[in-house]
Nucleic acid binder design. Structure first.
Lengths: 253, 253
DNA sequence: CGAACGTTTGAGATGACTCAAGCGTTGTGG
DNA sequence: CCACAACGCTTGAGTCATCTCAAACGTTCG
């Protein structure tokens, strides 16, 4: 195994950060760091994995944003997940051996690869670390379910409010949002593909959110005036993210 | 551990059936069977798990249908998964320790419970079986993603065609569909909650499917005249189910 | 400076929704 | 065994959220 370039800081630093009940032990983190076989920088809009490809490694996102998406036969696209730094992007591909969707960078990224053979060794030798990796994939699944709720039951303004609230919470957990403002370098078309809307309608909804004083989305920055208000608008309840704050279920949903 | 009643056949018989690459070895199946602490029959419309509950066991569905769903603050409901016999309904709750959704029987069911402490033992002592359990939860996640595509990008008639095609494929794998006809004892309201539509509209779409000669849904029986045609209508491609037939990715999506 | 890309706005079309009512089926208790 | 209540299915009429098509404008980058 070659020694990957590592410019400062640990690669896995943000992996499961904020998830206190499954925080990695120092030795587990060391095991994972050692399992990284390669580190790469890639430009925006690069396809990492195409659906159906046979996979032999999994990708940890160190910096930048990645989307996972499904295209229909007419080229319409539905994004099924947005990955932020610290996410193990295609760990699903380890037990499944192939993906049902594409993995594409939204921005320039830094990624770390872990070979499946090294994951095999981890599952043999480190049952608790294995359960934490499993947990990470199930967090993804929990987000999928919340997205299903979003697409199935919320209208356009609620969907966007919900997505921005979720992204704010996730980025806050890894130190990339102060709770009100964060960088999100994606286009309105990306937002449309996430929320199951057209670009035109996303544009109108963003104007309404601006007019209502709820939040602004301009030059890749999201500004949320009142996060609680926005969350209310989007029926967002952070429980499913399993983050430390506001984690007790309440009366409502 | 008490000896659970087992009226004929193995409880785990249908678990991962049809998933040849991860078929359970006889000894793994025995381990899983022995891990069952209790078997229960429950009537239709029984809530097994409420969102936020602390979980100490997971549920294997032996017979019947179960839904997993999220309710919004006005009581609107989005079903995020339908479980069929052989599914490990809330295995997600094992690493996560609580669920973000409700688990409710759609029909009368027979379920088998496995305590989390016994799953702990399995993860310690049986790494390959553990990976297969992990795999089972990731199949769920793959279905979640396909459902996201369905809700985000398909219109009403396509959504229902897609759902019925998916259900046909899943039931065929466990011997509950002959490829054209199967029992699906749910209401049009259930279908609406699955497809993100209203009951009224589901009714109209079902009539159109009938008029178009694609399929009928009457007295809990689904009859698909031409499965390929229906799949085409719903942009359904079984790849994401990881079943043995029609598993090669093709030119389209 | 021009091309490519992303954002914004308008006008008109439409798929799905809401509200409302009638009908069919099933199960239950008098 | 009939009557009625509860539930699910069906249909109609009118409304509305979102889409489609089209065009103009702003920004970035080579």
């Amino acid at each position: 195994m070659n020694v990957p370039e590592r410019d400062g800081g640990m690669l896995t630093e943000r992996f499961l950060r904020g998830h206190n009940d499954v925080a990695l032990l120092p030795e587990e983190r060391a095991v994972l760091e050692r399992a990284v076989s390669e580190v790469k920088k890639l430009p925006a809009r690069t396809t990492l994995v195409r659906h159906g490809d046979a996979l032999h490694q999994s990708t940890l996102l160190v910096d930048g944003f990645i989307r996972r998406s499904i295209d229909d036969r007419d080229g319409q696209r539905q994004t099924v997940a947005v990955q932020v730094p610290g996410d193990f992007v295609d760990l699903h591909g380890y037990p499944l051996k192939k993906l049902d969707h594409d993995v594409v960078t939204l921005t320039a990224v830094r990624v770390a690869f872990v070979r499946h053979t090294d994951l095999d060794a981890i599952t043999r030798e480190h049952p608790t670390l294995t359960r934490k990796l499993w947990y990470a994939t199930l967090l993804d699944a929990a987000m999928h379910r919340e997205w299903l709720f979003r697409l199935g039951r919320l209208d356009a303004i609620e969907r966007i409010s919900h997505f921005l609230s979720e992204t704010n919470a996730r980025l806050k957990a890894i130190g990339l949002s102060d709770g009100h403002r964060f960088r999100l370098p994606i286009t309105q078309t990306d937002l449309a593909e996430i929320c199951g809307l057209t670009t035109v309608h996303v544009n109108r909804v963003l104007r309404q959110l601006r007019d209502d004083g709820l939040c602004t989305f301009k030059s890749s920055m999201v500004d949320i005036a009142d996060p609680d208000q926005l969350a209310l608008r989007g029926q967002f309840d952070a429980g499913y993210l399993h983050l430390p704050w506001r984690d007790e279920p309440e009366a409502g949903r």
